[in-house]
Amino acid sequence: MTTTEPDTTDSLLAGIVTAAELSHEHFPDLTEFVPGIIFEGFGIVAGPPKLGKSWLTLGIALAVAGGGRALGQIECAQRPVLLLALEDSQRRLQSRITTLWGTEIPPYKLHLLTQVGPNLLVPTISAWLQQYPNGLVVLDTLGRARRQRRNGEDPYLADYAAGVELKQCVDAFPGSALLGVHHTRKAHSDDFIDALSGTQGLAGSADYVLVLKRPRNSTEATLQLTGRDAPEGEYALTVQAGAWLLNGRDLNAASDAAQTLRERGNLGDRSADILNVVNARTREGLITTAADISAKIGITQNDAGTYLRRLADAERIAKVSRGTYMGVSETS
């Protein structure tokens, strides 16, 4: 009697679909817990230590759980939230919630945990999502929760595996989200994703990454966003007594404010002031001369002309004719 080996070809290729078949599929839109900022899936919010990331994520958790306004402006649909505040005590959480929420009873849909048993992070998140499958989990912090690398383990692969485990956990519950808080490194990088502490493994496993930047002793900050399905953007924020607020009435206004902050940082205060004057006059349909700048800023016409020429050489403004300038955005 002869036996034949089972043909595994069909089972190996069972998941194939044609492009034509895929074009007929209908997928639900991604759930947005904070529209334009926090999406379903696995996300990371990162920033330097002691910058206010925990205050930021607590404010978001309160807004989502209460169906309020995140960052003071962005309306959120009410959803259950689990905050794994693994670096905080209940006393500290109570104080911070009172600071942000006031004396009224805080949202009952915000669930808090300050301790998770060894190797029980993923089971704990899964158990909660089984009860609240459309919920948001905030993990503060990733470094406190994840297992340590083993001796000889490849750092990138270890970070990637840790991130994939968390992503698979949340992906098992469509419509849910996991936002992990992480640190950035001290070294400067032009690409804000490179600023994440550790290897690129965590960032590579995440669906989107948010990076918070704020100069020390400043109330102004930016929040940069990039991801596979998330719209890339940079938004200006301000912080007041622990509360993070959008700098503008909406994300578009906050994006413009972030651009102004970036230009100010690149140009220096005097050049930024002159650029703002040129742009403001351009919006009014006016050209700008050195005399206009001298009258507005209080510097000599010679110095004003030097600044204007430098801004034009840097393509920050456009030279209309000899000695006259307009804002680039208005002429492009």
Rank of each mutant, 00 (worst) to 15 (best):
N217A: 14
E263T: 05
P118Q: 14
E21F: 06
A19K: 10
E25R: 12
G163N: 09
D159C: 10
F39N: 02
G47E: 04
Q73I: 01
Y307Q: 14
W55A: 14
L120C: 10
Y325C: 08
V170T: 05
K296G: 01
Y325W: 14
L212H: 14
E25V: 09
E87D: 15
Q168T: 07
T289S: 15
P49T: 02
Q130T: 14
Y156K: 09
L110G: 03
S176L: 07
L275M: 11
T184S: 11
D7L: 03
E75F: 03
Q148F: 07
L237R: 08
V64N: 03
P28H: 03
E330C: 03
R147I: 08
L202W: 10
T3C: 00
K53G: 06
Q94D: 12
F173G: 01
T57G: 03
A295W: 01
R309V: 15
E330N: 13
G298N: 14
H26C: 07
G72I: 10
E330P: 00
G285A: 09
I38T: 11
G327I: 12
I44Y: 05
G163S: 11
W244R: 05
G52A: 05
R262C: 06
G143P: 00
L93M: 09
T124S: 11
T114H: 07
K167W: 10
E220C: 04
H26F: 02
F27M: 07
E75H: 09
L100C: 02
A243K: 14
I38F: 07
